[in-house]
Amino acid sequence: MTQNKKNKGPFQFLQFSVIGVSNAGIDIGTLNLLLLLFHTDERGLLLLFNTIAYTLAVANSYFWNASFTFQHAAKGSNRQRILFIVQGIVSLGVNNLVFIASNTLLESFGVPNWLRYNVAKGLAMLLSFIASFFMIKYFVFKKSKKN
């Protein structure tokens, strides 16, 4: 299989997914650590904790995806860094919105705090992961026509 074919489609999504697992560990691990150290039900602090956790995962994602998954198109240019930050902010918005909405919905059903936070975080990670993949592939690390 040529390098060009390996970098497209399912193989690229598989690489992104493997890196996503490490991002998920950082994301959910950080959130749980912050909630363990500073337990809260206050929405503003939950958003802050979620934002901190997600930001650490996004930094990990940039390093690994630029180095492996999208290395054929990653040039490390200021433009790509700015576009990555923009997609990170959009994905953070998706993540925070899904996290808070899911948490609120699950709270109305009486789901215990720890389970509620983690289910909400899992849904938030899944949806922001999918959004992030497509934004990174088609917006950030898009191969230029001259390549």
Rank of each mutant, 00 (worst) to 15 (best):
I82V: 09
Q3S: 14
S102F: 12
K6A: 13
Q15N: 12
V18I: 12
T40V: 05
I100H: 08
N113T: 09
A66Q: 02
M125S: 15
K143Q: 08
K6E: 12
M125L: 14
N60T: 02
L97P: 09
L127V: 14
L126A: 12
V140D: 00
L35W: 03
I85E: 03
V140H: 00
H72Y: 02
I28V: 13
I19K: 01
N103Q: 12
L45V: 09
M1D: 12
R43D: 09
Y54K: 03
M125D: 12
Q15H: 11
L115T: 10
M135R: 06
L48I: 12
N23V: 12
I85C: 07
M135L: 14
N95T: 08
A73N: 01
Y138P: 00
W114R: 09
V140G: 00
R79C: 04
I100C: 10
L33K: 03
A101C: 13
G76N: 00
G44N: 10
N147D: 15
I130V: 15
T55S: 05
K6Q: 14
L35E: 07
G93V: 07
V18G: 05
V119M: 01
K146L: 15
L106W: 05
A101N: 10
L127F: 15
L56W: 03
N60H: 06
Q3K: 11
L31W: 04
F129A: 11
L92F: 02
A73K: 01
F133R: 08
V119H: 00
A131C: 14
L14H: 05
N96D: 15
K143E: 07
L127S: 11
S132M: 08
T104A: 15
N32M: 10
A66C: 02
Y117M: 11
R79Q: 13
K5M: 07
I82F: 05
Y62H: 04
F133G: 07
L14Y: 09
F16M: 05
L37E: 07
M125E: 10
N95F: 11
P10L: 15
G29V: 08
S132Y: 08
W64P: 07
L106Q: 06
R43M: 13
Q12R: 06
K121D: 13
Q12W: 01
A53T: 02
S128C: 08
Q80I: 00
G29M: 07
K6M: 13
I130W: 13
N4V: 14
Q87G: 03
Q71G: 06
I130Q: 11
F11C: 13
V21Q: 07
T51R: 01
L48W: 09
F63Y: 10
Q80T: 00
G25I: 08
I52P: 02
G122I: 01
G88T: 01
G20M: 05
L92P: 02
I52N: 03
A74S: 06
L34V: 05
N103I: 10
V119S: 01
